[in-house]
Simulated scan of single mutants.
Amino acid sequence: MRKLVLSALLVTASLFGFSANAADFQAGKEYVELKNPVPVAEPDKIEVVELFWYGCPHCYQFEPVINPWIKQLPDDVDFKRIPAMFGGVWNTHGQMFLALESMGVEQKVHDAVFNAYHRDGNKLDTPEKMAELLEGQGVDKQAFLKAYNSFGVKSRAEQAKKLAMAYQITGVPVMIVNGKYRFDIGSAGGPERALEVADFLIEKERAAR
């Protein structure tokens, strides 16, 4: 009986501890509230965006933390990745991501692309180098090159650039909740803490509906 009471107290303390931490999240501290909210793709859902770059070491280190979190998101949350495109190889990599996404294979090769850059030293700075890597992952080389150079992918790349400007981002990885709130690993206090901020803002948006 004593163990049950102690267990209940520990659970209660844990819950209160989480609530206290969540209650400490403040606009201007852990996150920024955008002055001009950006319209979301699906208004009936709560949108969560991660802006990233394949060449970013912090994005690479964030992957094993954010991926399990993505898998357990509820149905009313719409998660999406958007490549940050600040010129040069950022644009090249962003166009690769969008081409793979248009082909429906991005999730299949996402880790392989990250590993090629950070673990194997393959900078993937030309479409040909990308196609060679992707061919080894079961992606048709010519189909990828066609998608990479397509008008549709180039149009989506321009849209991604405009979104990054609207979100007023200056670095990655950065997360946006429902087009209203922006935060990054640094402002949140670490990778795990960033996801707590995301959960807090998701619940904030859910409660406001």
Rank of each mutant, 00 (worst) to 15 (best):
M1S: 15
M1Q: 09
K3I: 04
V5T: 10
L10G: 13
V11L: 11
A13W: 10
S14Q: 05
G17Y: 05
S19R: 06
S19K: 08
A20P: 00
N21I: 00
A22E: 05
A27G: 01
E30M: 07
L34T: 04
L34N: 03
P37V: 01
V40P: 03
A41W: 00
E42T: 14
V48H: 02
H58W: 08
Y60A: 14
P64F: 09
N67G: 04
P68T: 08
I70Y: 14
D75C: 10
D76M: 10
D76H: 13
F79H: 00
K80Y: 08
F86N: 02
G87T: 11
G88P: 01
G88N: 05
T92R: 02
H93R: 03
F97Q: 07
L100C: 05
L100S: 01
G104T: 06
G104H: 03
G104K: 05
V109N: 00
H110W: 02
D111I: 02
D111E: 12
V113G: 02
N115H: 09
Y117M: 15
D120M: 01
K123R: 09
K123S: 08
L124K: 00
P127W: 06
E128M: 14
E128A: 14
M130L: 08
E132A: 15
E132Y: 11
V139L: 04
V139N: 04
Q142H: 14
K146M: 09
G152R: 15
A160Q: 02
A160S: 13
A160F: 10
K162A: 15
L163V: 06
M165Q: 15
I169M: 04
G171W: 05
I176N: 08
V177Y: 11
N178S: 06
G179P: 13
G179Y: 14
R182A: 14
F183T: 10
S187N: 01
S187A: 12
A188I: 10
E192P: 07
E192T: 14
E192H: 15
R193S: 15
A194R: 05
E196K: 08
A198P: 05
A198C: 12
D199H: 03
A207Q: 14
R209Q: 09
R209M: 12
